[in-house]
Design a protein around this nucleic acid. Structure first.
Length: 518
DNA sequence: TTAGGGTTAG
């Protein structure tokens, strides 16, 4: 038998019934992430008169699931029925998983229900389908029915509850495990973090019998999620002192914290540290660097990192375009949009790219260009505008004082105008001291939500609108209404770094110095 | 066969 390789697709030049060889080839291709090659190998195999067996089908079904090949997946399912392999336990489980990967949870359940005999792998696979899609009610039902749950079953349940931020349910399961492993502990820490209970997360973290890099990252990411950025950096520092080497996600978390704090100095140090760790060219880290430099005010450093990086993917492009938007560089953002689509890179913009581009147009006052892109999103980019895109356009029109266009867009859009869209409209009226249009916006907001449904921010914006136009009595009336409704506005505050120290400005209270604490 | 945040307007 002679194997010929062409573009990583294998052909047998001599028709040999060596099915085991083919199974090995297909399996390797799937493991390498080449689902398309695996399917094509299977087609070639069939051309040679060979048929799939109980080793081939699970791998093929996995390939179809991984690559979201719905039609191929359905055809393979049909073949298993025709050939009788659908009675095979492993193939039934593979079918269940394939439907799950295709996002067809109900079909996965059907495959599960059809199984006459279910082993623990089948039960766990069904549990995982529900837990990873956030359907914890169904997961509990399966978990309670299964005959003998193992450690994996318990861990799947905890991670499912962690994802939905259900700390109490997660803990109930956690406490039932006789021999917890590191996955159980890490998932439980995440459950606490995702439900906002940082104290308990910390307590658990301290009492863990062993920790790995994922345990540390769970703490860093948890603090980030809960907006405790300096705490996140503190944990990264502690990793350095301890024996755990931070990985690319630890560094990404640290950079993200710097971005949120606007701390360029710490960000630069973090960049140096990433270099010493050899992670400065990980795609995650590069994206976080581009974002950090832009958010900390240095768009030039941001561009430098972007241009130096050779393997630019959609995340990098989106990060730099959003960064340019933040800095009001409308034309530069448009230029990069064209560059990414050009043959050299050939990357297809997604909905996030377009949010960045539209906001760049908005900040740069490029009304015509923004409108043109928004109008051709479907045709040119194959992207249906979401509420966020409408929000950018309302912002763009409002900033350019084109209130009629903004109002018209709000009236015709297929969504109910949320707080952010109406807020964009209103804040532009405040800036331009435009009482007439501002009142229109107030009426729109009040009528869409009712007076009882107004947020504290909206009450204050109304008051600001009237105040900015010199209507002090009306402004006071809205403030009074806010106080009457029992809303206490949290004081606005901002952090700024001066010579390595953080200073906090709280509205109405001036400046406080801080030592790296929020 | 179970654990982890790269990019998202105002």
């Amino acid at each position: 038998m002679v194997l010929v390789t062409c573009n990583s697709i294998c052909y047998l030049s001599v028709a040999s019934p060596d099915l085991r060889r083919w199974n090995h080839i297909i399996k390797t291709q799937v493991l390498e992430g080449n689902a398309g090659h695996a399917i094509r190998s299977y087609i070639n195999m069939q051309r040679l008169g060979l048929f799939a067996d109980n080793y081939t089908f699970p791998v093929l079904l996995k390939a179809a699931g991984n690559a979201s090949y719905l039609c191929i997946g359905l055809a393979l399912h049909g073949q298993t029925v025709k050939t009788g392999f659908c009675d095979h336990l492993f193939i039934q489980t593979a079918l269940l998983k394939m439907y799950s990967s295709l996002g067809l949870v109900d079909d996965a359940r059907k495959a599960f229900d059809k199984m006459p005999v279910k082993d623990v792998v089948a039960w766990n696979s069904m549990l995982d389908v529900y837990a990873s899609s956030g359907q914890m009610g169904n997961a509990v039902e399966v978990f309670d029915t299964m005959p003998s749950p193992d450690l994996l079953s318990f861990n799947i349940m905890i991670s499912g509850f962690a994802r939905t931020g259900s700390k109490i349910s997660a803990k109930r399961i956690f406490e039932r495990i006789p021999d917890k492993d590191i996955v159980s502990w890490n998932s439980m820490v995440l459950a606490c973090m995702n439900s906002g209970d940082m104290a308990e997360a910390h307590e658990l973290f301290e009492s863990m019998p062993e920790k790995n890099v994922i345990s540390w990252n769970a703490m860093i990411m948890g603090y980030l999620k809960n907006h405790l950025y300096t705490k996140a950096i503190e944990f990264l520092d502690k990793m350095k002192v301890g024996n755990i080497e931070p990985d690319h996600l630890s560094v990404t978390g640290g950079l993200s914290a710097c971005a949120h704090l606007g701390s360029l100095e710490t960000g630069i140090q973090m960049h140096k540290y990433a270099k010493t760790l050899g992670q400065a060219s990980s795609p995650h880290v590069v994206t976080a660097l581009i974002d950090m430099y832009a958010k900390c005010g240095s768009i030039h450093k941001s561009l430098e990192v972007f241009y130096k990086f050779k393997h630019k993917d959609i995340y990098c492009w989106n990060a730099i375009i959003s960064g340019l938007a933040l800095h009001g560089c409308g034309y530069a953002a448009l230029k990069l949009l064209n560059q990414m689509r050009a043959n050299d890179f050939g990357i297809k913009p997604d909905d996030i790219t377009l949010i960045g581009v539209l906001s760049a147009c908005s900040h740069g006052g490029l009304v015509e260009q923004g409108s043109q892109i928004f109008g051709s999103m479907e045709k040119q980019f194959g992207i249906t505008p979401k509420a966020e895109h409408y929000g950018c356009m309302v912002d763009l029109f409002s900033r350019a004082r084109l209130f009629d266009s903004a109002l018209k867009l709000i009236e015709t859009m297929p969504f109910e105008a949320g707080e952010s869209i109406l807020g964009a409209l209103l804040s532009a009226c405040v800036i331009h001291q435009d009482l007439e249009n501002g009142e229109k916006a107030v009426k729109l907001i009040v009528s869409s939500r009712g007076r009882g449904g107004l947020s504290d921010g909206e009450y204050l914006m109304f008051a600001n609108l009237y105040g900015s136009c010199g209507q002090w009595e009306e402004a006071q009336r809205w403030r009074d209404m806010m106080n009457e409704s029992g809303i206490v506005k949290t004081a606005g505050c901002s952090l700024i770094e001066i010579n390595g120290r953080f200073h906090k400005f709280v509205a109405g209270h001036g400046m406080q110095s801080l030592d790296r604490s929020n």
